[in-house]
Simulated scan of single mutants.
Amino acid sequence: MVCGSLAVAALLAQGAPVAATALLLLFVGFAGLHSPLAFPRSVGAVEAQRRSEADGRPIVYWRAGCAYCLRLRFRLGRDARQLHWVDIWRDPAGAATVRAANGGDETVPTVVVAGRPHINPDPEWLRGQLTPST
């Protein structure tokens, strides 16, 4: 956003308000897509595990800026709300869980279904793991 703001200010100083507006909208949209705001509210890894044990819903470990996480989120649509989301950049326990599942790497999205990790699963497969009552 800082770089975008500087570029917009430079365009405005050059007398190009239309280009500045278009660039500003582009940067705001890009920032919104890569922010945690595009995802359901995250919980901590311990809380997600507790909730998953209680209701059987999968846990998605993700991080802001991840194109694969964004793809998963948007392809799931409303079904994304049925999952427990853990932002590994905000939760050290979540990051440790992902590293344990991926041989030390923080590869996301990592989805845990019934205690088994699945790395970057197909959204349709994941949708099929949701029970109709959830």
Rank of each mutant, 00 (worst) to 15 (best):
Y61C: 03
C66I: 04
E53S: 13
V46D: 12
Y68S: 13
R73Y: 01
C69I: 05
F30Y: 13
R41P: 07
R41H: 14
S52C: 07
S35A: 12
A45N: 11
H84D: 10
Y61P: 02
A45G: 05
Q82S: 14
A38I: 13
L33E: 09
R50A: 14
Y61Q: 03
L37W: 14
R63P: 01
G32Y: 12
A54W: 05
R41G: 15
G56D: 05
A54R: 13
L70H: 13
Q49H: 11
R50N: 06
R73I: 05
W62Q: 03
W85D: 11
A48D: 11
I88A: 03
F39K: 01
V46A: 15
R57H: 09
E53L: 13
E53M: 09
E47V: 14
I88K: 00
V60H: 00
W85T: 06
Q49N: 10
G56P: 04
A80K: 07
A31F: 09
R63T: 10
R50L: 12
G56W: 02
F39A: 07
C66D: 02
Q49D: 08
L76I: 10
R57V: 11
A38L: 11
S52R: 07
R50F: 06
L33H: 09
V60Y: 00
C69S: 12
Y68M: 08
V46C: 00
S52N: 09
F39E: 02
F30K: 02
S42Q: 12
P40I: 03
A67N: 06
R81N: 12
C69Y: 07
R78G: 15
R73M: 10
W85S: 08
R75C: 13
A54Q: 14
D55N: 13
H34W: 07
G56N: 02
F74Y: 14
C69E: 07
Q49I: 00
Q49K: 12
F74D: 08
W62R: 06
